[in-house]
């Protein structure tokens, strides 16, 4: 009697089939139900953009300009780089948790060709898609590790200057990558004065967002938040140094980075959106732990703040 119900449970958890329709300008290049998700690669033939989608009505997970695959297409991926202005040195070792289309690690390695880059990605099909459709290439300095992000961080012996957390989908967030314990493990993999940056999507300032703010604030001495203008993304920047980074210092360093690296994104404009996490802190929100983290339900509940 138990067999069918388990089978059903297994199917529902692991193989959600999602039909979808394309816009007239869109062309489907690839689709697959991988072990972890539905992956579709779609090209907009008018806007000349190519992106990964996990569901029809969701934002894309990542993407590129077909004619300029090295550029960053999405605002949130550009905003992530503002966190480099919190580092007082050139990053030598970087870790990305979550690969997506591979746009961010690719972009980073373009501007920091001498940096060593590790990418932890749970889904082997995602890596294949990034390589085949998004001109992502591993090299001797940039390696993808097919592993659960939490496990990669826990087992890592190396320390990093810069850790980018981007392993959440819009419709599914792995709870064990949101908890205080996880953030502490991430922190333990940072070199002195290293920086963690995380992409948090919160369409209507949901409860998940409230709890993430409080959890980051508990794990790190200083947390800064940059708000997306074109999307519902918030970029959390967390530092371990005892001295907080003031707005003026961050803006000055962003300007210096722009001049030195000639980024094709406007880091100064993003730096101007600097906000302390205090602006978003709400004491009523619960800190997420390995024991308590109902993140996928919190995503659908309105923020308790105001």
């Amino acid at each position: 009697m138990a067999k069918t119900r388990y089978l059903l449970f297994f199917i529902v958890i692991l193989f959600p089939l999602r039909g979808f329709a394309l816009e007239p300008s869109e062309k489907l290049l690839f689709e697959k139900n991988s072990l972890y998700q539905y992956i579709s690669v779609i090209e907009d033939t008018v806007r000349k953009e190519r992106y990964v989608r996990n569901q029809k009505k969701e934002y894309a997970q990542g993407g590129i300009y077909v004619n300029a695959p090295d550029k960053l297409l999405y605002e949130f991926t550009q905003m992530v780089f503002v966190s480099l202005a919190f580092l007082e040195r050139e990053p030598q070792d970087a870790l990305f948790v979550g690969l997506g289309a591979g746009a961010m690690p690719k972009y980073f390695s373009r501007y920091y060709p001498n940096a060593n880059i590790d990418v932890a990605e749970i889904d082997p099909d995602m890596e294949a898609v990034a390589q085949k459709y998004f001109s992502f290439k591993e090299n001797e300095r940039m390696k993808v590790h097919v592993d659960d992000g939490r496990l990669f961080v826990k087992r890592a012996r190396k320390k990093y200057d810069w850790i980018v957390l981007d392993a959440y989908q819009n419709d599914y967030i792995p709870f064990h990558l949101t908890t205080l314990e996880f953030l502490k493990e991430v922190k333990s993999r940072l070199k002195d004065d290293g920086v963690v940056v995380s992409n948090i999507t919160a369409p209507f300032r949901n409860k998940f967002f409230d709890s993430m703010v409080m959890t980051y604030r508990k794990a790190f001495p200083a947390v800064y938040i940059f708000k997306g203008r074109k999307s519902a993304n918030f970029i959390f920047v967390a530092t371990t140094g005892s001295r907080p980074a003031g707005r003026a210092a961050v803006e000055a360093r962003a300007a210096k980075l722009m001049a030195a690296k000639k980024f094709d994104i406007d880091l100064e404009a993003f730096a101007a959106r600097y906000e302390l996490s205090d602006a978003y802190a709400w004491e009523g929100a619960r800190v997420l732990t390995d024991d308590f983290a109902p993140v996928n339900l919190y995503q659908h509940q309105k923020s308790g703040a105001r």
Binding site: A2, K3, F10, D148, G149, R150, F175, H176, D290, A293
Partner: peptide
């Protein structure tokens, strides 16, 4: 599944182990 995730992740192997052991 929540007990296992912090140490073993949420890979397909974790779900496979969990379900097969319960069965």
């Amino acid at each position: 599944s929540r007990v296992l995730a912090p140490n073993f992740g949420s890979s397909v192997f974790v779900w496979g182990s969990l379900i097969s052991v319960f069965l």
